[in-house]
Design a binder for these strands. Sequence first.
RNA 1: GCGCCAGUAGCUCAGUUGGAUAGAGCAUCGGCCUUCUAAGCCGACGGCCGGGGGUUCGAAUCCUCCCUGGCGCACCA
Length: 552
Amino acid sequence: MRANETLRKLLASFVAKNGFEWPEKTTIEQPKDESFGDLATNLAMMLTTQAGKPPREVAADIQDFIKGQVSEITKIEIAGPGFLNVFFNADFWQQTVLDVLGDGDNYGNLKIGKRKRVQVEYVSANPTGPLHIGHGRGAALGDSLTRILRAADFNVQTEYYLNDAGRQMRILGNSVWFRIQEILGREVETPEDLYKGEYIKEIAEALLDAEGVDWFNSAPLDEILAMCQEVAMEEILEGIKLDLAEFNVEHEVWFSESSLLESGAVDLTFERLREAELAYDKDGAFWFKSTDFGDDKDRVLRKSDGSLTYLASDIAYHDNKFDRGFELLVDIWGADHHGYVPRMKAAVQALGKEKESLQVLLVQLVNLLRDGEQVAMSTRAGEFETLADVVAEVGADAARFMFLSRKSDSQLDFDLELVKQKSMDNPVYYVQYAHARIQSVMRKATERGIDAVSVDTGLLAALDTPEDKRLLKIMEQFPDAVASSARTLSPHHVSYYLMELAGSLHSYYHSNQILGAENQNQMRARMLLLDAVAQILRNGLALLGVSAPESM
RNA sequence: GCGCCAGUAGCUCAGUUGGAUAGAGCAUCGGCCUUCUAAGCCGACGGCCGGGGGUUCGAAUCCUCCCUGGCGCACCA
């Protein structure tokens, strides 16, 4: 990040001096091949049109311009079609240790968010049954993304949208009532739509105990159903909150769908749309003109039987979110809802916002395996592996890291046996081990009576080997990884970065004695270096919501 | 039929504003523990980036047409 910024400033002044425009597609990055320099940029090739000369000539101009301007840059080479390969001196990279130790837990924090108000809404599973593993993926994503955005200086609020109105809730109540009647030995017809899980029976039994058989024999049916529905939802919701807590996830706001209906917010939104001529009556129903904003067809908001569609409350909900002052809404949905995205984007535009102010992240369903064998999942049939079971079996850290090591929008095989394994199939241990390993060295130092090393610029000159530089350069990239994750709303960049950093640390550790270094200065400098690596590992793992153990 | 996402090493996956010789781990094979944690390190093997065409200095990346897989296409949620 620091190297990048240093070079970018120089290049920008070159561009300005010549009256050029900074090309959007300019890249400045650490090249894979070390012989291509510490940083490489394609700026010269990007400027050929503006400069009216071939890339290598532009590159030569830039080279002349930068040469000698800052002492940190020791060499600039022109390579290939017109790349500029830039080399920094050792001191520049060593400085990274001071940056990390100076910033501590804040190293990697950025200013790019500018306190922009963002809401992340995630999980939002209907409270009709326990969370399953797919919800876990959304939960890990939403939670980690929140941590990353906050580190990047966005002002983030997290929310769970509770679908506590409508048909699903009625079915839930019916399901419990059906079980109660079954327990009471009544002959009743099995309803078509029914949640069949064991948890329904448990709720039914508990409710029957609490209210007593007499009450169920005497109370009016609608009262009974209301009771069943309410108790079931409360019980299930309680369970969901516990499961999320076990998974290290906590929502700040629980927003109720029925509150929107009761407050009249939906009606207000309807009026707004009608006035803007973005909604109309047809065939006894009330329609949203979503085709005005690129949707395939217009969508019904109020059905001809007078009931509302899911979309109706959803538009009102998003209207409400914007009213609360959020500038960017991030919704995390299961990929099976992707067909819903265009109409929600249309809704956002109908509400007078840019369509970019809603970002929908789709989470592909998780393919749960055990030893390569697929585990069936269906909420209705009650056959599924719950999130709670999985977390209990493999641990929250391993589960979270597995989810966050993949692009969210690609299918994921989650093999329980694999995630339990403490091997490289399971990189969480690889990263955590790097941290534990460093802490172990530090403990060993204490045992040997070596004093904690205070941060000292002079010491760092001892970090002068190629291995030192390699490690330092990767450390310097951590803020870039955070920026990349924040910009693309994809935590997996942080996961990949951590695997790379851990790999470099393991390699470094293997080929360099820390406490057995050649001299005192080198030992102390290496202790500082490792201290800084541990700090970055902690910071990075914290962004994923994964622990950084002191020992393993 | 239409739409969205995907197809990269034997397997699981990175590669998001087009960049230099396409990467990582696992698996396989071969080395490394008397020294700070071997949950580790070093090396080898491994590729028509699904296929064809196009855009340009340059394509896994952009356009187009096919093939395959997943998921959607309700006055369901």
